[in-house]
Amino acid sequence: MSKKSNHVNSNSADLDSKTSVIIVENLVKRYKELIALDHFNLDIKEGEIFGLLGPNGSGKTTTINCILALLKYDKGTIKVLGKEMKPDSYDLKRNIGVVMQNVAVFDELTVYENIDYFCGLYIKDKSTKKQYVEDAINFVDLDKFRKFYPKKLSGGLLRRLNIACGIVHKPKLIFMDEPTVAVDPQSRNNILEGIVKLNEQGATIVYTSHYMEEVEQICTRISIMDKGKNITIGSAPELKKMIKNTETISIELLDIPEAVLEKIKNINHIYKTEYIDNTLKLYFSGGRHNLINVLDLLKKEDLHFGQVYSQLPTLNDVFLELTGKELRD
C-alpha cells in the first residue's frame, strides 16, 4: 500500500480541473413514505477513489442503484461519463463495472467459466475476451483455482472471484458495494491493494463501506451520508479538520480527587472530561504537547496511573460530531 498515501493526500483542489465521471443533482428517491435519498448531490471526478460512508440504511446502496439505473427515482438528474444514465444505456454500461455486496456468481460454473461468462456479456471478440479473462484471473491471483467451483473456495477467494467478475471487462468506472464484508483481515488487505491497483491503472472507483478505516485508507474523497443526505464531502484530513476534537487522551486511574480533576479541566485546549470505569478521558481541541502537560500535572499531584493512550480523531468522530450518533449504530 505504498502508493496509497498519494491517493489519500491528493489535493482536493487538483480535482476541480478533472472531468466529472458522475454528476448527481437533487436526487430524490422514496419508498412509499420513507425518503431514502433526500435531494442528494454528488460530483465524482475521473481517477478518484470516492468513498460513500454511512451507517446501514443511510442510502449508499440506493444511491448506487439509482446511478446504475437499477432503481427508478422520483426526482433529480444523473449523468455518468457525460451522458444521462438510463436502463437501456448499454454503451455506457459497457464502461461500468459493478462489484456487488453479495457474491454474485454461479456455483455450477468453475472460477474460469464464471469470469468468462460475465466477460462475455461485455466483450464479443473471442481472443480479446480470452485475454481479459486471463488478466482478471491474474489480477485477483486466482490462477491456481481456475478449475475450482465457488463452493470449494474460502470466503476471501470467493470475494476475489466476485471482484474479478465485476472488473474483467476493464471498465473505466467501477462501483464496489462493501466488497470486504465478512472477509478476514489478510484477504481484506489484498482486496484493498487490488482496488488501489485498479485505480492506478486508470479506473475511477466508487467505494461504499461502513468500515471507516478502509475508506480512510484508500479513498481520495469521502462523502458522509446519513438519512439519504450528503452531510459533507472531502478528503479524510479535510473532514477531520471540520470537527472540534483534535486529540483524545485516555488514562487509567484507580481514583482521582475532585480537586485534581478541576485542575486538569483547566489545562489549555481541554473542552471535555469524563471519568468512567477507572478511566479518565480528556478531549482536546487544538494545541500541542497536550499529553506532556497532563502527565506533568498528574506527577505533581503524586497520582499513580496505569496505561495511557492518545488517539487522533477518526471518521467515526467526524460522523459522531456531525450527526450525534456512531457510524456503526
Partner: peptide, 18 residues
C-alpha cells in the same frame, strides 16, 4: 431459478446486454 436469483439478475441488469 439461478438466472432469476436477485444477485445474478442485478449483475446481468448492469451488463451491456439487454
Amino acid at each position: 431459478i439461478l438466472f432469476n436469483e436477485n444477485k445474478i439478475k442485478s449483475r446481468l441488469n448492469v451488463s451491456s446486454v439487454s
